[in-house]
Computed example of a mutant assay.
Amino acid sequence: MPVPKSEFDRLPPCDFYTPAELLEADQMYTVYEIARLLQGLEPEAELEAETEDILLDWAIPWIMTNADDLVVAEPRSDEEPGYYGLKEE
């Protein structure tokens, strides 16, 4: 249910990183690593499964929104996720 804005002390702008600000040009990242980076964490940070699920809710739309600036690599094995990286100019 919606709540009034007046219930919040602070309402900063909803500003997300651009792919170039978030990702290293010579690296490829899993969606899990991107989720961590979007929260200011290290890509290999240990998280509880429930926390990781919440972070994925932010990362998946970010990837879709920024798809024009990204490249994707197929998993190297069936046990591995796909990878995303910056598209070269």
Rank of each mutant, 00 (worst) to 15 (best):
P13K: 06
P61H: 07
L55N: 02
L56H: 01
C14Y: 09
E89V: 12
M28A: 07
E50D: 15
A35F: 05
E74M: 09
L47P: 03
T51G: 07
R36D: 02
L22K: 02
E74C: 06
D9S: 06
C14H: 11
E50V: 11
P81V: 01
T65D: 15
A73Y: 15
Y83H: 12
D53H: 11
E24G: 02
A45E: 07
A49C: 03
S77I: 13
G40Y: 07
K5W: 09
P75F: 06
E80C: 12
M28P: 00
L22V: 06
P75T: 06
L23E: 00
N66F: 01
M28L: 13
F16W: 15
I63A: 04
R76A: 15
M1H: 14
E7N: 04
L38G: 06
S6E: 14
D15T: 07
P2T: 03
P12E: 03
P4K: 02
G40H: 08
E50Y: 15
A20M: 10
G40Q: 05
E24L: 14
R36L: 05
V31P: 03
P2W: 12
Y84S: 05
E44T: 08
A59I: 02
A49V: 08
A35I: 05
L22Q: 03
I60H: 05
V71H: 04
Y32L: 13
L70K: 03
Y83S: 14
D69L: 06
A67M: 04
E7I: 10
L70D: 00
L38E: 01
T18Q: 04
M1L: 14
L47G: 04
G40R: 01
A59G: 07
W58P: 00
P81I: 04
G85C: 02
P13M: 14
D78L: 14
E7T: 06
F16H: 13
Y32G: 05
C14K: 13
V3I: 12
I60D: 06
I63C: 00
W62Q: 03
G85W: 02
R10A: 10
Y83D: 07
G82C: 13
Q39G: 11
N66V: 08
V71R: 05
N66I: 03
L23K: 01
P4S: 15
I54Y: 11
E46Y: 12
D9C: 10
F8N: 00
E44G: 12
L47S: 08
P2F: 14
Y32W: 08
E88D: 15
Y32E: 09
V71F: 09
A25E: 01
R10S: 10
V72R: 11
P2G: 07
E44R: 12
L38C: 07
E33H: 02
E33G: 07
K87T: 04
A35P: 02
T65Y: 13
E88R: 14
P2Y: 08
D9L: 15
E50P: 03
S6W: 12
C14Q: 13
A67Y: 05
E33L: 09
V3C: 01
V72E: 08
T30Y: 04
Q27L: 14
G82W: 10
P75M: 05
G82R: 10
Y29M: 11
L47K: 04
P81M: 05
A25W: 09
E50F: 10
S6C: 07
W58F: 15
D78Y: 09
W62K: 00
L38Q: 02
P13V: 06
L55H: 03
D15R: 15
G85I: 08
